[in-house]
Every structure is written in structure tokens, then in C-alpha cells.
Design a protein around this nucleic acid. Structure first.
Length: 350
RNA sequence: UGGGGUGUAGCCAAGUGGUAAGGCAACGGGUUUUGGUCCCGUGAUUCGGGGGUUCAAAUCCUCCCACCCCAG
């Protein structure tokens, strides 16, 4: 049976961001009779904004009678999340910093911190479920479920994870937190890339990467020149907006030819893909135990697609019965069984 | 400077007397702990320019301009 949290974790630590979900996770654990403590890490160099948030968090924790431990992980966050993010864009692939952050920072550094404090588990406010096996499952709220972003967590990390909100619905969570502690310190925050305040990743990349490939041709699938692109890092597979090409119908990015600095575009019916390669496979279930048919997601909130996965070490070949939106290189591919269990995940290869 | 054709928003384009469709692009918003996708919304007091006919013209007449094609 699925339980909302693991039997271990008598002394759980909770990674609190200041938002609704992590604070509610904290409250719920305590209501279970455990003695949770809160961890808060700065991911960005602590400025006025970060300090204010920390102080408000401290105030909330104090009211709840829960210890709060604060860490400055801004340097590590930069080297382990932001730098790879920039490198990937510069290379022409499309990174997923949140998935990386979950693996390297939240269930990396914050989990380490918890263990150093004598803890044996880390809870977060993710909408996903874990079982003692350990196994990772989708959260119950289909509108909010976040297992996709956790697909790169190792079995060891999952074994120490607690997701108290896995069976919750977002609306209920908001109300529940409000009833317990009132509005959270970080209410109404935007949900985009946390280290790009204005959410303009193109500008961010341009300002942080010294040498970027410049403009080049935009061709259709038959080689006809339709226009000029302003740097391949500004486009991603399947992208429609920003091409600036008047045509009889919408055009989408079919391919990024990095060798020739060329963007290949085409109509929607040219967009389908039947297979893709996933590298850096992370197995949450032994390959020999996988079912014939799996369900894969190449991005958050994508309808899971039926597929067959051919596993081979750290690589997987994924084939789709019918063509659909092309998997984007650099993005996380999460693979599930029909019950919503995460079998594994990896990075879509170029 | 003989003949023919075309000229409607950034691009394509419907409309041939009754008071400017549509598509693409662009922009704005919504959805969203990544990028993208998707959804919604926004455009021409005006139809290359002037004059005329008419109650009424992008649609008819006329002159001019621009571009294209065929002839020299």
C-alpha cells in the first residue's frame, strides 16, 4: 500500500522555501507526532530579499516551536545548477535546472545537512509519493503532481525522501496552511526559473556566456531558406514563437543543426518523432523488472505517452507507437509504469 | 513611354457598388517550480495617390505613380 510518508524519519528535516507547500509539509509531519526541524538554504547570494525571507521564516518556525537551520548554498548552487544551465544553452541544448537542483541541491546538499544534524530523512513540499520499497509515484493531484522533476533522484535519495503532500490537492493545501499559520512568507512568488528574476533566459544566457554562436539561416525541411535566426541558443525543439517567419501556417523548430548553425523548421505535421535516446539513465527499478510498455514524459505536464524502452546500461532507446511532439535534447525524460510509478529517468540526448 | 498584368495591415490574401474575411508574423494576457507547447485577446475611419460618377466605391470612370511580364 502507498503511504503518505515513510516509516523511517523519526527525526525528519524539512526543506522549507517559504512557500505554502514546504511549510505545510512541516506542519503535517509534526501533527503526525514527529519532531521535524526546518532547513532553509540560500540558493542565491543572500541579499535583502533573501534575508527578509529568512527572517520571516524564522518567525514562523519560532511560532511553531520548530528549530530552523539556515545555510548559504549560493556558491554550490551556482556551480552545480547555474553553470551547467549556461553551458547547456551555449551548447545548443535545453536544460532543466529544476530537476538538477532537486538532485544536487535539495536532495544533495540539504539532505547532507540533515544527516549531519543527525536526521535520517528529508521532507519537501513536492506533490509526489514515496513508498518504503523505495519507490517514487506520481502525486495524487493531477494538476500539480511533480514526480517529473524528481525523476533524476537516485534510489538512495528516494529512500530518504518524505513527501507529505503526495496525497494532497493544491487548493486544500493552501487552505490548510492558511488555517495553521496564515499566509506564507513567500506567497505569490512566480514559478519560473528561480535564478532569473525577469524570466528572460535569453538575456540571462547572453549576459553570462562570453562566446555564443551568432545568427544563421533558417531553412525548411527541403533546404529552402526562410529567414535568419539570432543564435541557436534562443530556440528549442518544437518552438513556434519567435521565428518571425510569415507562412501559410505556423512553423515549428524541427531541428537545430549545431554543426552548421542552422535552424530547420517545418509545419506541425512534420514535427512528429518516433524515437529518442536517453542518456545518464537513473534507475528507480531494476531494468529486469520493467514492464514491456512504459509511459514517458519529456517535459512537465505533458500527456504521458505510451512507449517501449530498450534499456542498455546508462542509455535507453525509447520508441513511440505513433509519432508525437519530439523529445527535446537536454530535457528530462521520466519513465513510468501504468500505475504512475517512476521507473527511472534520464536526459534526452541530442 | 507599344501591349498586357499587378498594387488591400510586417508578409500572404478574400472581397468587383452597400459601408474592409482569413492565415502567418508581431505584441499582450492566461496555464506552468525548466525551456517550449497550448489557450485567449489586440490590429487598416481604410484598400498605391489625386480627381470624378453615385444616396453609397477597395469595388465604376479618369489622370498620375510604382513594380512585373511580353514585345523593341
Amino acid at each position: 500500500m502507498l503511504s503518505m510518508s515513510r516509516s523511517s524519519g523519526h527525526r525528519p528535516f524539512v526543506a522549507v522555501s517559504g512557500g505554502v507547500d514546504s511549510l505545510l509539509a512541516l506542519c503535517l509531519l509534526r501533527e503526525e507526532g514527529r519532531s521535524p526541524e526546518a532547513l532553509h538554504g540560500f540558493f542565491l547570494p543572500p541579499g535583502e530579499r533573501e534575508i527578509t525571507l529568512r527572517d520571516e521564516l524564522a518567525s514562523v518556525c519560532s511560532r511553531l516551536g520548530i528549530p530552523l537551520h539556515t545555510y548559504d548554498f549560493s556558491r554550490e548552487f551556482h556551480s552545480r545548477v547555474i553553470t551547467p544551465f549556461l553551458e547547456q544553452y551555449a551548447r545548443g541544448v535545453t536544460p532543466n535546472p529544476c530537476a538538477l537542483c532537486n538532485r544536487r541541491i535539495k536532495f544533495g546538499l540539504l539532505l547532507d545537512a540533515a544527516r549531519e544534524l543527525g536526521g535520517d530523512a528529508l521532507a519537501t513540499g513536492h506533490y509526489a509519493r514515496v513508498t518504503p520499497e523505495p519507490a517514487l509515484y506520481r502525486g495524487l493531484d493531477p494538476a500539480k503532481e511533480q514526480s517529473y522533476f524528481l525523476a533524476l533522484l537516485t534510489r538512495e535519495q528516494i529512500a530518504q525522501a518524505i513527501f507529505p503532500l503526495g496525497t494532497w490537492r493544491k487548493e486544500e493545501a493552501k487552505k490548510a496552511l492558511h488555517d495553521r499559520v496564515g499566509p506564507p512568507p513567500a506567497s505569490g512568488e512566480s514559478q519560473e526559473v528561480c535564478f532569473i528574476p525577469d524570466n528572460d533566459y535569453r538575456r540571462f544566457v547572453r549576459e553570462h556566456v562570453e562566446v555564443l554562436p551568432g545568427p544563421g539561416p533558417i531553412l525548411d525541411s527541403s533546404g529552402r531558406r526562410l529567414g535568419e535566426h539570432s543564435g541557436l541558443y534562443r530556440y528549442t525543439l518544437g518552438q513556434r514563437r519567435g521565428l518571425g517567419i510569415p507562412y501559410s501556417e505556423p512553423l515549428y523548430v524541427l531541428k537545430k543543426d549545431l554543426e552548421n548553425n542552422t535552424l530547420i523548421v517545418g509545419t506541425r505535421d512534420e514535427l512528429g518523432a518516433r524515437e529518442c535516446t536517453v542518456r545518464e539513465m537513473n534507475y528507480l527499478l531494476r531494468p529486469q523488472d520493467w514492464p514491456e510498455t512504459v509511459f514517458v514524459q519529456g517535459n512537465y505536464r505533458q500527456e504521458p505517452r505510451e512507449a517501449v524502452a530498450y534499456l542498455s546500461g546508462d542509455r535507453a532507446e525509447v520508441r513511440f507507437p505513433r509519432p508525437a511532439q519530439p523529445p527535446t535534447p537536454g530535457q528530462v525524460m521520466a519513465l513510468y509504469n501504468e500505475d504512475g510509478r517512476v521507473l527511472g529517468g534520464g536526459i534526452i540526448s541530442e
